[in-house]
Nucleic acid binder design. Structure first.
Lengths: 330, 330
DNA sequence: TTGTACGCGTTATCAA
DNA sequence: TTGATAACGCGTACAA
């Protein structure tokens, strides 16, 4: 900054004024400052700025970059934060890096608030982190109403219930559900299935998988369904990837979707939209989740006494080609 | 830090010493300092540290979070950087955020070096960025030998040639190639195809797609192949997602893989490994790319006079079930 | 081991 | 519009 000031022969603090778009400089000077800054390739030092202001205009974001949907939420957070003049500091959770480490690193930036995407903030961890961070924390995608962190999540139970009712409306009666207990939002989705089945007076059939919702687990589900005496006419899954694996494994076994079995997913990920996959699924709306997350942190940044809230983002059914009227009722 | 010092009644600089693991404090004091730091939830302020040292131990990383393979490289960069005591500052390229903006933001952190994943640094942009940043820049995945930035890339031409030779060894003679000109590494892959076909004295057949390598473009390739008089016995694609789309669209049209047509992909992404997809593909080794990228930046961080290099990471063929002996030679 | 003093780049306040 | 001065949190040199 000193270089810029010297270059055009003005004071350092005038340059600071101009770059922060504060009043107090003539239009002509403003133009010269901007020109000089561009010419010299000058950028304000974010660290120095944060230091001086004892409050950075930065939001920390914890996410899993290799996840199917988390990057979509990150993508939505960027413009929402930028609109309020905030930068993002991303911190990834990877195979070699725990969420605790990711959060720890963010604390060094003295962010104004933290957005944690995914199921890293189970009850106790949430409270500890919130106490530790001393700044508002938002958990996106998982967790329930909570005294220490805001929660932004999808209405997963409603989404699954929509699938069940859609299938029932098509005439299905044997509707199985593929469940993975290890995923935190899965419990909510399962409850939606059970509730919808009960309302329709249908017999629930839950297939519980080991491990995460991956394509492999969908294939495992297919193997287990095929091993049974009779296939259900429809399968609701809690995740697109599991649905994909299920469909492909069924196809290998000569069972066609949707002719013999209808299948639904959850997420409306990029796979689902593929014309070749054409999966009926539940859309999560990462854009609204990202915007809601930013709104939630900033609400508490601006009013530190505000209490954390729970924001539920609606889900909606996307009807595609993987569901159809059952071939025969039996 | 002052708080920690006051808490246990020692000087601020002693705390600094201990936390940086420098000699000059008794074991007993060390323990007390660490205990107090943990209890108070203290973390050094990265901005203040960078400011004081006029050289942050941070590496900036530009990447596309929604991309199929870039997050894998990011994941590999983390441990490689951590091993040398460097933190990462991630900056995402999204639909609403250009690579120029992503880089611009990183400059504010005064990173020791920049790693740009993807094809954002075409010739001129690379030189400009390198001049602007005043720190070493590495381009990962795209770009060619260059005076201003290091390049770490896969041997894409070799990888595609491996596919062609593998198919030829199985007995294939009509081997088509699905090409997408808009992707920067694609030219290299195409050249590998053409070279290998020439060496085998086979007639090349290049199917050029509009747009990126997406599942949709694979489906488009399938439609165009099906519209022709006769299908090739094998199709080499420059990307797993395109191969996936191709296979699924062929399946819908009643053409089975590998029985009627063999297909290869490129990337060994998560789809390819799926037992239901079981795609023969080329493995890019994101781990080695990430490690090489870190090594390349740090080489020039430590020796600013060093010239940029080009590092080529070998690729290898992963033989799976999407390729087989052609049903009949015709 | 401690205290003292300085500077990193920036913002903020004041009086001129 | 400017200059003087201080402060943010940290690292480091030096003397005690």
């Amino acid at each position: 900054m000193t270089d810029v000031a010297r270059d055009i022969g003005v004071s350092r603090q005038l340059v600071s004024l101009v770059l922060r778009e504060q009043p107090g400089a003539s239009d002509e000077t403003r133009a010269r400052v901007w020109a000089a800054a561009a010419r010299l390739g000058y950028r304000p030092h974010v660290g120095a700025r944060a230091l001086r202001q004892s409050a950075s205009r930065q939001l920390g974001v914890v996410f899993v970059p290799t996840h199917a949907t988390e990057p979509d939420i990150v993508e939505a957070i960027y413009p929402a934060a930028a609109a309020q003049g905030y930068q993002l500091v991303l911190s990834a959770v990877t195979a070699t890096r725990t969420s605790a480490q990711a959060v720890e690193e963010l604390l060094g930036y003295r962010c104004a608030g933290l957005i944690v995407i995914g199921a890293h903030l189970a009850g106790k961890a949430a409270a500890e982190l919130a106490a530790r961070a001393r700044v508002p924390v938002v958990s996106v995608g998982a967790g329930r109403r909570n005294a220490s962190v805001d929660v932004v999540r999808s209405a997963g139970d409603v989404g699954v219930a929509l699938c069940v009712r859609h299938l029932a409306a098509l005439g299905h009666r044997q509707i199985a559900y593929v469940h993975s207990a290890s995923m935190s939002p899965a419990a909510l989705r399962l409850s939606g299935y059970l509730k919808a089945m009960a309302e329709l007076a249908l017999q629930p059939a839950v297939l519980e998988l080991h491990g995460d919702y991956t394509e492999e687990s969908g294939a495992e589900a297919a193997r287990r369904l095929l091993a049974e005496r009779r296939l259900p006419t429809a399968v609701v899954t809690g995740n697109d990837q599991a649905a994909m694996g299920l469909i492909l494994a069924l196809a290998r076994a000569g069972v066609s979707v949707p002719e013999q079995v209808s299948v639904t997913g959850f997420d409306d990920s990029r796979f689902a939209r593929l014309s070749a996959v054409d999966l009926t699924t539940v859309r999560q709306d990462p854009v609204r989740m990202g915007a809601a997350a930013v709104a939630a942190v900033l609400r508490r940044v601006l009013d530190p006494k505000a209490r954390p809230r729970e924001v539920v983002i609606p889900t909606r059914l996307v009807e595609r080609g993987s569901t159809a009227v059952p071939r025969s009722r039996s």
